[in-house]
Design a protein around this nucleic acid. Structure first.
Lengths: 223, 223
DNA sequence: AGAAAACCTGACCAAATGGTCAAATCGAGC
DNA sequence: GCTCGATTTGACCATTTGGTCAGGTTTTCT
């Protein structure tokens, strides 16, 4: 008992933590589906299973809640970003990065959609992230790509545009999943289909920049 | 005079045509920036330079106006789609298609954003287009890609996922142009930069699927 | 010129929505 | 079992917004 109380004392009660979690989860869904303006605090409260007034007890304004959601998404994004650096070999690094981004698109499509909505609406909330964290991350990774080119490990390519292609393609599987599902006969991609999509993206990018894994068997698989 | 009147009689007066054009142009911008729910008829009317009540004289409801905007965008999309068929050579066809889609992203970023917003919000208005026109267009082009593969003109690749990659990447330059501008130091890509981006996309896709233009000089440019 | 049709707009309305508040309830420590 | 702060919530309010309407103006047709 005493230990339990002690644990709860750690800042916020269990009930509070649970409520905040439920609200944030509901908010991510609703913001993703409806955008900032399209989402209503009433919808979010309902999906979280509590009255609107209670939601405003935890998050004073709709914008404060939205900011928390966006910050959470940015955290996930940073995790993916790290996978770029796990290996200095272009094949390994890009394969890991693309795979991670694809997995995130499958596991957290809502987060990706909120991000997309933000950019579409000129990033009223995350503009500072774009100008600081994202900009510095991007320029340093472009430097890595430039080095790979200089070392002859990949064909000459503009690093920014390569990264944009990877971002666009991987995030497409989250942001446009409704279109993909519709073209797939109305059903979401199966695990096997998604795996094939992931492999397709990896292969096209790697072959596209002439990054071959050790043995030059790249074109050997051709029929 | 008589001739002028005759010309005006052709369905709608010049004033009417001009007003409708101004409203639709303003609506496309506002819907792109703010989404369906975020846009207000007041904002659209103001940007079009006429009172809100007048806007409602031309377009009875906000949704009717939105539908017209979306239909216009779909028309543009269909034009781009045709460029895929101008040539049966994979290099020619894909180069033309990617180039056209990139040009549209630069010329009509607002339209692309409205489309993206629609998909993000589960396509409440264009679902029927997705299930009919887009679905049949896609499956017939996938058949073309499959044939190219069977004929050994490109490496084995899943046609759907290749198309998704092209759509994602080209539309990224419209939908995420705010992010791209920010990473470009706050300024839009210059014509030269955009041209390089376009060439980068074309090259990566073509090399990525092993589509080489006649002479096998693909990897020769490597340092 | 004059009637009819088309067009324009300020004023207005009902519904939706973000946010507030006071009163009620709960829960831990004494 | 009583106190006090934390939590919960129904009722309420000010603002925004899609849409209406009556009356005025312009254009077209004869």
């Amino acid at each position: 008992m005493a230990a339990k109380q002690q644990a709860r004392q750690t800042q916020k009660s269990a009930a509070r933590a649970e409520n905040e979690r439920a609200i944030l989860a509901a908010a991510e869904e609703v913001f993703a589906e409806s955008g900032f303006r399209g989402a209503t605090t009433g919808m979010i409260a309902e999906r979280a299973g509590l009255p609107k007034a209670n939601l405003h007890y935890y998050f004073p304004t709709k914008e404060a809640l939205y900011r928390k959601v966006v910050e959470h998404i940015f955290t996930i994004w940073l995790d993916a970003a790290n996978s770029f650096d796990e290996n200095d070999d272009p094949v390994e690094a890009l394969t890991a990065y693309i795979s991670t981004k694809m997995d995130i698109s499958r596991a957290h499509p809502m987060g990706s959609k909120v991000w997309a909505n933000e950019i579409l609406h000129k990033a009223p909330v995350i503009q500072d992230y774009l100008e600081t964290t994202l900009r510095s991350w991007t320029s340093s990774r472009v430097a890595v790509i430039d080095r790979w080119v200089a070392e002859g490990r990949i064909a000459p390519v503009n690093g920014e545009y390569l990264l944009y292609m990877i971002w666009a393609t991987t995030q497409h599987y989250a942001d446009f999943n409704h279109q993909i599902d519709t073209l797939n006969g109305g059903a979401p991609l199966s695990d096997a289909q998604f795996e094939e999509a992931k492999q397709t993206v990896v292969r096209i990018v790697l072959a596209g920049i002439g990054a071959v894994p050790a043995a030059p068997g790249g074109e050997g698989s051709q029929a």
